[in-house]
Simulated assay, not measured.
Amino acid sequence: MLMKAWFLTKINNIENNPLELKKVKLRSLNDDEVLIKLKEIGICKIDLNLIEGDAVNFGYPSKKPIIPGHEAIGSVEDIGNKVEEFKKGDLVGISMLYSSCGKCKECLSGNESACKELLITGESIDGCYAEYFIGKSNFIFKIPQEISEKAILTVCNLPLVYKSFKLSLRNLEDKIAIYGLNFFSFLIIQICKFFNVDNEMIVLNEKEERKLNNILKEVNIKKISAINKNYYDGLILFRADDNFYKLVKSVKFKGRIINVTLKSLATSPLLEGKEIISPGIPTKSEIFEIQRSGLLNKITFNKIFYDFENIIKALSDLKMNNEIAKLILKIK
């Protein structure tokens, strides 16, 4: 069977059309694999980072050409001979976790995203920018019908920002700052509200302030020019820019700075007593936690759909950051 898929053939800015649409033959399934017909493919900032070369220093993509994309929802089309937990027609999700060894200390402790043999969907192995996806059955997530409308959030964006939120806190009485207005920060503001955690969204200018006020009510906003030294217990960064050291100064001694970017943040005497943490890839248990929690019911967001063939437009819109919404490729 043939399928259409988008391949990254060269690292380049999205404006230069670095993706190529091809028809390729689907391989046969191994015993532990699941064939999924994709319905919704999430467009994520991490995809854009990969395509434009921001992940090269981390060794990704580890092959070219590669099919990018690491978050999608679809239905099971076929299963391998030893797969028992899925059947044809099941609604399932695909995350960044393609596979791990399952035997090392990290895997056995539920921290498979730290496995040395970890394969990342769309970065070290072909991903979801395609009509079909073949995945390992123990890394595919069954989607309960009651969360199907919000399912695309559960495989990447929400587990990642929820993990970042938890890492930023030592206790629920902490006050945290959020920097970098995008869909991730939009979600984390709602998480703070759900857990009644004091927070401020730091914006660059009035334009960002207006944009945020248009989509969220009762949000605490502070301009970068007005932040105080030693004020926040934690800081979550969704943007790394020239304001970094000013933001660091706003964090208290022993405060935590969560770096949800692919930028390496240089050490400095300014960081003395303050800890920089990267959240890493959400684990299977963290994804299941999001599916089962009451948090998902309280999250509101808009979806913007694009035809599968309009992927360059979708990624360009994501880069422009004009809409704080979940951008999704829809396969008919």
Rank of each mutant, 00 (worst) to 15 (best):
K39H: 04
V251N: 04
F301D: 07
N205M: 06
E146N: 15
K284Q: 14
K229I: 14
K249M: 10
N297S: 11
I176N: 03
S316M: 06
L50I: 07
I14E: 07
L181I: 15
K246N: 14
S62Y: 00
K45S: 12
K211V: 04
P269T: 06
M3F: 10
M320R: 14
D307P: 09
K274P: 14
P282H: 02
S148F: 04
F165T: 12
D242W: 07
L8R: 12
K252D: 07
F139E: 11
I311N: 01
L108I: 11
I51Q: 07
N30K: 15
K63V: 06
D241G: 10
N81M: 03
I178C: 08
T9Q: 04
I46N: 06
N111V: 02
L295W: 09
K211E: 11
A55K: 12
G42R: 01
L19A: 02
V76G: 00
L91F: 03
L295P: 12
R170Q: 06
L295I: 13
G135A: 09
L169R: 04
I143H: 13
G122H: 00
I14S: 05
K88Q: 07
E146L: 12
L35H: 03
P18M: 01
N111M: 10
L118F: 05
N12T: 05
L247E: 12
P159L: 09
I236R: 13
C192E: 05
N171G: 00
L295E: 10
I224Q: 01
S124C: 04
I224R: 08
G110V: 04
G80Q: 06
L270D: 13
I290V: 15
G93L: 12
C156N: 14
I143T: 15
L21S: 04
A55F: 08
S124A: 01
Y129L: 11
K39Y: 00
E123H: 03
L187Q: 06
E131T: 11
I178K: 10
V34C: 04
E209Y: 00
F253K: 15
D174H: 11
K23H: 13
N199H: 14
I134G: 00
S316A: 00
K163N: 11
V161Y: 03
D78T: 00
